[in-house]
Simulated scan of single mutants.
Amino acid sequence: MLFVIKVGGNVIDNPALLQSFLEDFAAIKGPKILIHGGGKIATRIGDQLGIESNYVNGRRITDAATIDVVTMVYGGLVNKQLVAKLQAVGCNAIGMTGADANVIPAVKRPVKEIDYGFVGDINTANLNVGPLKAMLDAGLTPVFAPLTHDTHGQMLNTNADTIASSLAIALSAHYEVRLIYCFEKKGVLRDAQDDNAVINLINRSIYAELLEQKVLTDGILPKLENAFSAIESGVKEVLIGHAADVRSNTTGTVAGTLIC
């Protein structure tokens, strides 16, 4: 089993929670890949540099100044701090972006109603997973920042949930894959105000009912869309749950929301 694990939300910003998560992640047996976010840190650094963050429908508008900031913060500051912390707990991690080894080529999102700027869209069929397999076979753990490239020298800001889903799909041709989205909630919640209102199982029909009832928050919708995309493209299992449950979610016991 290959575990493709995305961590984000407030976990990255909480030193104690992050340290606990990284210790649990390091303890996972067998091959694993980590994908991380870091949007709040990028916003904070951007503010310090006088570069304002702009969002539309929860998505960051990435102009020329912003792509420089997110490349520095995601690919540098956050990525290398995570790699260093993993090395400290015995996990031989290697920091990556989609440009490294040309693993995730992407295309700049076409301008339609909204110009998202330097944002990358991924075609999963174009991923180059050979280098990842070689790293995993060598006992290395790739740690991906949410950045891709256009193969013409331009870095692109790309949603970390999407990168996780795309990697899981591409690698499912070679491994049995469990994709896990870790954040600060216990799973997909029926009531956003009740942390214990976890929906343990979601399939397409249940998802349609939840959308009709309008009980899901905007932040969880991209995770669910990516989850269903992964399941329908060969990934065996997708879990959405709390970062503190990552160890149980890699040893057989399911805590959180299972997508099937």
Rank of each mutant, 00 (worst) to 15 (best):
I114E: 08
L127M: 06
L147A: 00
Y116P: 12
V143Q: 04
I104K: 05
E113Y: 07
A99D: 01
T151W: 00
M155I: 15
I94L: 10
A160Y: 02
Y116D: 07
L127T: 01
L140Y: 14
A99M: 09
Q154T: 13
V111D: 05
I114P: 05
H149N: 14
G117Y: 06
G90Y: 02
T151C: 04
D137Q: 14
Y116L: 08
D137I: 08
I94Y: 03
N126Q: 10
T97I: 02
G95Y: 03
I122T: 03
G90A: 09
V103W: 04
A138M: 14
K108L: 00
P146F: 00
M135N: 14
F118W: 11
F144H: 03
K133C: 12
N157P: 09
M135H: 10
G117A: 09
N157H: 10
F118A: 04
V143G: 03
G98E: 03
T158G: 01
E113M: 07
P105A: 09
A88N: 08
L136I: 13
A138I: 13
A134C: 09
K112T: 14
K133H: 05
D121V: 11
Q154F: 11
T148N: 02
N102T: 13
L132V: 13
Q154N: 14
T148P: 05
K112I: 13
L132C: 12
G153I: 14
H149I: 01
K133F: 02
K112D: 15
E113W: 02
F118M: 07
I104E: 01
D115T: 05
A145H: 12
P131T: 11
L132S: 11
T124P: 12
V143L: 06
G153L: 15
Q154P: 04
L147F: 00
M155G: 05
A160N: 06
A125H: 14
F144R: 03
A101D: 07
L147M: 15
G98M: 11
L156I: 02
G130L: 07
V107K: 08
P142Q: 10
L140C: 15
Y116W: 13
F118G: 01
V111P: 06
G130Q: 13
R109D: 06
V89A: 09
G95R: 05
I94W: 04
T124Q: 12
T124E: 15
T151F: 00
G117P: 07
P146W: 00
F144D: 11
V119H: 00
P146N: 04
C91V: 06
N159R: 05
E113F: 11
D121M: 02
V143D: 02
A93M: 12
N126M: 08
G153S: 14
V103P: 08
T158S: 00
V103S: 04
Q154V: 14
K108W: 02
G117L: 03
P146H: 00
L136Q: 09
M155K: 13
L136E: 15
A145M: 10
A145S: 15
Q154L: 11
P105L: 06
N92H: 06
G98A: 09
T141A: 12
P131N: 14
D137L: 13
D121L: 11
A101M: 12
H149A: 12
L136P: 13
N159P: 09
